[in-house]
Design a protein around this nucleic acid. Structure first.
Length: 225
DNA sequence: ACATTAACCCACA
DNA sequence: TGTGGGTTAATGT
């Protein structure tokens, strides 16, 4: 059987066994689309009929609040996008935008629900994903509101370094004003804080290239706010 | 808020 | 196919 879904991270990721007929169902109801940097993958306010999986690349999740755009988090492949929207509300409650070139898989919601009903392991896995992401959201909420700018910015840099890129050197995937929207600060404050970090020898920067030179210090700042 | 720089697009050669 | 000009977005102060 030749089937694009066989070796897809979308399935492998779940460590769940799929029956052949279930794989065929998936294969028949999915579409893969490429997105360029800056393209909108999911748009807030529009009707959604798909489960969406990020196969390759990186994306930012953001929501338009009463005053401005709020970035919620940054995710990298492989991961599901928009599961809460899929089950909580047919209208997308937030937007997702590609920050690098990305491959995205759109799965028909009907087929997906059928799989959930048939395959207990699979639905348990999805439930776990949702739970983890809610817990993470709680944690972030507490962090964000209680920390000062330097602490939050340190968090962001550590997040890039440890979770997204897994390296001490990376190029910022977001503009400084985006980072500002992420940690509830103006872009100018971000710029100033970054300059301070450079001054203190914690990081080096040229353009969007960042190199973390004193991770211990960065973690200190992250913890102490 | 303003000045500088980098990125991008389009026309034209 | 490559180059100049003009425009816009990002950055630094």
């Amino acid at each position: 059987m030749k089937n694009e879904c066989n070796d897809c991270v979308c399935v492998l990721r779940s460590f769940v066994q799929m029956k052949d007929c279930q794989l065929e169902l998936l294969d028949g109801s999915h579409t893969v689309v490429q997105f360029k940097r800056g393209d909108t993958i999911i748009r807030q306010g529009v009707f959604s009929t798909n489960v969406i999986f990020l196969r390759k690349g990186m994306a930012k999740i953001h929501i338009t609040g009463p005053a401005r755009e709020q970035i919620v988090k940054l995710v990298k492949a492989p991961t599901y996008l928009g599961l809460p929207t899929t089950f909580g509300d047919k209208i997308n409650q937030y937007s997702v935008t590609a920050v690098t070139e990305s491959d995205v898989c759109f799965v028909d919601i009907g087929a997906f629900k059928k799989l959930l009903a048939e395959n207990n392991d699979f639905s348990a896995y999805i439930l776990m994903e949702l739970s983890k992401s809610e817990l993470e959201a709680y944690r972030r909420c507490a962090n964000r509101t209680q920390k000062q700018l330097r602490g939050n910015l340190a968090d962001v840099l550590l997040e890039f370094s440890e979770h997204l890129f897994e390296s001490d050197q990376f190029t910022l995937p977001l503009s400084q004003s985006d980072i500002g929207n992420w940690v509830d600060a103006g872009r100018e404050s971000i710029n100033r804080a970054l300059a301070e970090f450079i001054q203190d020898g914690i990081i080096q920067m040229q353009g969007r290239e960042v190199k973390i030179t004193d991770k211990k210090m960065l973690k200190m700042i992250s913890q102490n706010g």
